[in-house]
Each structure stands twice: as structure tokens, then as C-alpha cells.
């Protein structure tokens, strides 16, 4: 193939990629645009830049409550999953561990199964135990769901650490807790942080499991879903834009932390 036709192909591929990106992101851009300009019955007032919708959003108590519930749910479920993932990874890596494959299956399954199955199973489980649904049940549901992500990252990190590191610590007189605190935790910290961010974004927009487990509680995705039936107000554009910026920030942090081979920065 000659140089010019190669260049032609590359240019064409570039245009195609640009077109795909444009189609994918146009709604997002339009949503963000409509959150800062005026839209009236007569058309779009391109000159009318205003942050009015953001102000309106700030006064919408039901949305703010949903955001707060979502943040609480995400923070709690991620914290719970961090503790569980470290404990499980340590156990699976221990030479005397039994039922390794079963544990891994149990950890990964809720992430791989359709959320509708996970949500429904948990709903039946809680109903049979007579546990009333609310924020606590959503937290449990999300923990089960995001555990797989944290577990995978923690386990990979743990497996990359030489066993002599912990032997050396014990050899120098450290108890198990001292080894955990001074040697293991500093080595796991970055993997846990990356996993926590990923798990947080998953929990933040999780909808299906929440539907089954919410009871009277309302998370942000559930609130938006409910609003779909009565129609959106333009302040939703403001909310979506804020969520988008937040997600982009988290994604950038994660991608900066991950090296190409999937390892974490120190």
C-alpha cells in the first residue's frame, strides 16, 4: 500500500472515530449547554447565559435529599466492601485456606449476574427474614455488588507482594497486627484507593438493585426515574452536568493511578 493511500485510510478512520464520539457525546453536551442557557417557548436564547437552573436545583429539597441518601449509601457500602475484600483476599491467599474457588465464585457472582437477579434474591431474603427495607438494605445490596471490584484489585496487589516481606516483618519481631499495620496496609493502600473510587462510581448510579431494596428510601437514580413519569424540569440538566463533571473527575483520578499494565502507582 502506498504512503498516500495509507494516509487516506488513517484520515477516514479519524473522521469516523470523530463522528462516533460526536454522536455519543452530543446529548451530554446539549444537556450541559441547556443547563446554562435559557430555553423558552419561542426558541433558544443563545445570548442568555445564566446559572439560574443551578440555583433552582439547590432549592429542590427532594433532589437534594436523594443526593444525600446516595452519598451515604455509596460511602457505607464502599467502606463495608473494603473491609470485606481485604479479609477475604487475605484468607484466600493464606496457604491453609479451604474453599478458595467457592469464595471467589460467591464474590464474583453478584457482579456478573444481571442486577435484577441480585436485587430480587436479596429482596426475597430480606422479606423472609422480616427485615424492613431502607437505607441499610440498599447498603448491603451495593456492598455485595461492588465487593467484586475491590476484591479483585486487593487480591491482585496481594499476590504481587513477595511472601518474604511478611516473613521478614515477623522475623524482626513484629506481631501479626504490627505486620498488618506497618507492612501490609501501606502496600495495599493504593489498590484499595483505586478500588474504592471505582466501587463508588458503581454504587453511585446503581439503580436496579436499589429499586428492589429501597423501601421508602430514595437514591438519586431512583428519584430521576420517578421524575421521568411526570416530566423533567430543566434543573435536571444542571444536575446531570454536575454528576457528569464529578464522574469525569473520578475517571481521571482512576486512569492516572493505573499504569498501562493495570498496576497501581505507589
Amino acid at each position: 500500500m502506498s504512503l498516500s493511500s495509507e494516509r487516506l485510510a488513517a484520515t477516514a478512520a479519524g473522521f469516523l472515530a470523530a463522528a462516533v464520539l460526536a454522536v455519543l457525546y452530543a446529548p451530554v453536551v446539549i444537556g450541559a449547554l441547556f443547563s446554562v442557557i435559557e430555553v423558552t417557548r419561542n426558541g433558544i436564547n443563545w445570548g442568555g447565559f445564566s446559572l439560574a437552573w443551578y440555583g433552582k436545583l439547590w432549592q429542590n429539597q427532594s433532589i437534594l435529599d436523594a443526593v444525600r441518601t446516595t452519598l451515604i449509601v455509596s460511602a457505607c457500602s464502599v467502606s463495608l466492601a473494603i473491609v470485606l475484600s481485604i479479609a477475604l483476599a487475605l484468607y484466600v491467599e493464606w496457604e491453609g485456606a479451604i474453599g478458595r474457588r467457592l469464595i471467589e465464585l460467591v464474590v464474583y457472582l453478584p457482579f456478573l449476574l444481571p442486577p435484577i437477579v441480585t436485587g430480587l434474591s436479596l429482596l426475597i431474603f430480606f422479606a423472609n427474614l422480616g427485615i424492613s427495607r431502607g437505607v441499610a438494605t440498599i447498603v448491603i445490596g451495593h456492598s455485595v455488588f461492588v465487593l467484586a471490584v475491590l476484591y479483585r484489585l486487593v487480591l491482585t496487589r496481594l499476590q504481587s507482594l513477595p511472601a518474604t516481606l511478611f516473613e521478614a516483618s515477623a522475623d524482626l519481631g513484629a506481631t501479626r497486627w504490627q505486620t498488618l499495620r506497618h507492612v501490609l496496609w501501606p502496600q495495599l493502600r493504593s489498590a484499595v484507593a483505586t478500588g474504592a473510587i471505582l466501587a463508588f462510581t458503581l454504587s453511585f448510579d446503581e439503580t436496579l438493585i436499589s429499586v428492589f431494596l429501597a423501601g421508602d428510601a430514595t437514591t438519586l437514580p431512583l428519584r430521576l426515574w420517578a421524575m421521568m413519569r411526570v416530566g423533567f424540569t430543566p434543573e435536571i440538566n444542571a444536575l446531570v452536568t454536575l454528576v457528569l463533571l464529578f464522574s469525569i473527575a473520578l475517571a481521571i483520578i482512576v486512569s492516572l493511578r493505573m499504569k498501562p499494565e493495570g498496576e497501581m502507582e505507589e
Binding site: 516473613e167 521478614a168 524482626l172
Partner: peptide, 16 residues
Amino acid sequence: SHKRPFNTVFQDYALF
């Protein structure tokens, strides 16, 4: 191990 009066130099050094 942590209560024995010995210390070890590991083959891979095992520095933290």
C-alpha cells in the same frame, strides 16, 4: 517466628 532470638537475611533481601 517473631519471638525467636534470630534474624534472617533473605535471598531477595525482602526490604520494605
